[in-house]
Design a protein around this nucleic acid. Structure first.
Lengths: 215, 215
DNA sequence: CCAAAAGTGTTATGTTTACACCCATGT
DNA sequence: ACATGGGTGTAAACATAACACTTTTGG
């Protein structure tokens, strides 16, 4: 009976992933250049319509693999988007997922078939995107804010270790200015979030930074 | 083109609301007795299929009003459910919303047309429900746990004031045993969550409880 | 030698935890 | 009078906030 009712007909579900990384002191987001209508040739978030034979989680994994060759990403729901006209042609509900991975995935993407279509954009240089994907990214940034003190996020971002100044830049971008550098360091160390690796990283014209591992 | 692809055909979206209240020292959830197939005569969460001419938020409001006459409820997304067979007949994605309201809404429901169909169930006495609604409720309980210290929740639950023992029972149910009564009181008062009303509430065979307002 | 950026410690304030006895009421 | 359940305070541990000078390096 539902099938006959125009109020319910022709609906679909989009699964989209806002995938962040932190590279070269910039917060970046992965975008794909579309090669189909609608929004052909526009940049968009990775993702697409959910198949009938898969869960939304599976759809995200499939789409990400197809379009970027990235696998083994853990992601998390952050919001659902249901404006009536968010997609042309058809009523599509958008389900937004959040993930963050380390910058070594940058080169990984470049090895895929669709290399020319996938690119990391600085979060401040995101162009106009297909659908409501700009809105999704804004929302995901807020979500990141609420999760940034979780060790899990840091482990995913810095599996090879990190310096405190590098972390400080990340937190400044995500949370905004105004963090005290000394208290920041104390929180990371006393809170047992990082531990010293006995290595240092050289800096041009300045004292070397100590390298820490995420605990 | 999407319309012709069996992988995408005949999908729909369910919006469901897990509506909690706290009444008579019990955490309760609102259920509706279904009067249509599928799952005719089974208890279920309020909600239903999202129309093409409304957002999911609007669908929740409409369904709740239709089935319980309750309006002006603030709700929040807590999860999305996408198991392939969660609905018979058709592929339906379920979007779960959370809300909590004060117990005076109990009588409100009884004044509606569908009174015999809507009932508050003690959270420990929820029967087998239609669809995956038991799973949704379990999930919403977890969500409540993460929000229970927010003043907004308490304001919605106790607009007419509350005693500390009553709050203590709520927190014990939601968070589990093991809260220290004196520290609990201190947190509420020093944290400026509640403030004394100069009224008391009588207790049988025991000292009266002070009544507090949520600040 | 100097500019740039990283490293470092103390004090005060607020928050959380642990813990046990007295008080008002109804029967 | 007594059982029931509500009310109350203090000290220790821990977390957060405010605040400025010294050290290492490259040019």
């Amino acid at each position: 009976m539902i099938l006959d009712n125009p109020l319910y007909k022709n609906q679909g579900i989009h699964a989209n992933l806002v995938l962040f990384t932190f590279d070269n002191d910039k917060l970046k987001v992965l975008l794909i250049k579309r090669t189909n209508e609608p929004f052909n040739n526009m940049w968009a978030l990775p993702g697409g319509a959910v198949y009938n034979n898969e869960t939304i989680d599976e759809a995200i994994k499939r789409e990400l693999k197809e379009k970027t060759a990235i696998t083994n990403v853990e992601f998390e729901l952050f919001n659902v988007f249901s404006k009536i006209d968010r997609a042309p042609d058809m009523r599509m509900i958008g389900v937004g997922y959040f993930a963050i991975i380390d910058k070594s995935a940058v080169s990984f993407i470049k090895q895929t078939q669709k290399t020319q279509d996938a690119k990391w954009f600085d979060i401040d240089e995101v162009p106009n995107l297909a659908y409501d994907h700009n809105e999704m990214i804004d929302d995901a940034k807020q979500f990141l804010k609420s999760k940034i003190w979780q060790k899990g996020i840091l482990k995913k971002l810095f599996p090879q270790g990190v310096t405190i100044p590098e972390l400080y830049k990340l937190y400044t971008i995500v949370l905004g200015e105004g963090l005290d550098r000394r208290n920041f360091r104390k929180k990371l160390l006393l809170g047992e979030i990082i531990s010293y690796s006995n290595k240092v990283v050289k800096n041009k014209g300045a004292k070397p930074s100590k390298l820490y591992y995420i605990q």
